[in-house]
């Protein structure tokens, strides 16, 4: 369980994230929507202790993420290319991440075999460093590396933005399965309202750092969101 208490983060006296209280429970698939600058990515960064909160705390299983490192062992995230190591080949990167979770090369290979369709032949044995891959393929590497860690908390920033349509569908399927079967907490931000309402059980709408809507997804949710984003 992740608990957010009174968290505030400001840049130049403007609150980018300001959330009095929020909770994520196991088995929840949460979608974060909002226009650019709403504070989605900053919230994720706070969650991963990549930026320091001005006020408040985020507890992951009752431990403050800014104090202990325990959360690292069960949390996986991919926000942007900064999460990859650019001068490695995809294989080397997977083995490195695997090693951090005490997985042998054989374990990693076995895991990657399940990603053959997702990778579509353009990642493994491609003869490229990660920095030479296209943005979409880098993203696939990032997602696969996340799942390789068998995380219990998964954070993905705009996972649908750079993927081709088939991969988007596959990802949707994977995420749905994972949250239900493995009792994970999955946090996804997206601008794609269709996908988000399709995948997520719960949707948080952010505006200028605040959560202005916290809704359980129903058949009307898409309509509701579209009305909000109407120009």
């Amino acid at each position: 369980m992740i608990t957010i208490n009174n968290i505030v983060k400001s840049y130049r006296n403007v609150a980018v994230v300001n959330i009095p209280s929020l909770e994520f429970r196991e088995g929840e698939l949460i979608g974060l929507v909002g226009n650019n600058g709403a504070g989605k990515t900053t919230l994720f960064r706070l969650l991963l202790d990549l930026v320091r909160a001005d006020k408040g705390e985020i507890l992951s299983r009752q431990h403050n993420v800014a104090v202990t490192e325990d959360w690292k062992s069960y949390t996986a995230a991919y926000l942007d290319e900064g999460f990859l190591i650019h001068y490695l080949t995809p294989e080397e990167y997977f083995y490195f991440i695997g090693k951090l979770h005490h997985l042998s090369k054989a374990d990693v290979d076995e895991f990657l075999a399940g990603f053959e369709a997702f990778f579509d032949g353009s990642i493994l044995k491609s003869g490229k460093f990660i920095r030479d891959l296209s943005k979409g393929n880098q993203f696939k590497v990032g997602i696969a590396a996340c799942l390789l860690q068998k995380p219990e908390v998964l954070v993905l920033d705009e996972p649908f933005a750079n993927l081709d349509p088939s991969s988007q569908m596959r990802l949707v399927k994977m995420l749905k399965e994972l949250a239900i079967r493995k009792k994970m907490i999955v946090l996804v931000s997206s601008h794609d309202l269709n996908h988000v309402t399709d995948v997520c059980h719960r949707i948080l709408l952010m505006e200028r750092g605040r959560i202005i809507k916290d809704i359980d997804t129903t058949a009307d949710t898409l309509q509701e969101l579209e009305t909000y984003f109407q120009v």
Partner: peptide, 16 residues
């Protein structure tokens, strides 16, 4: 040197 992958390194399961 690792600045471009530092976010990833610090969220990975690697104690500082």
């Amino acid at each position: 040197w690792q600045s471009s992958s530092f976010d990833g390194l610090l969220t990975s399961n690697l104690p500082v």
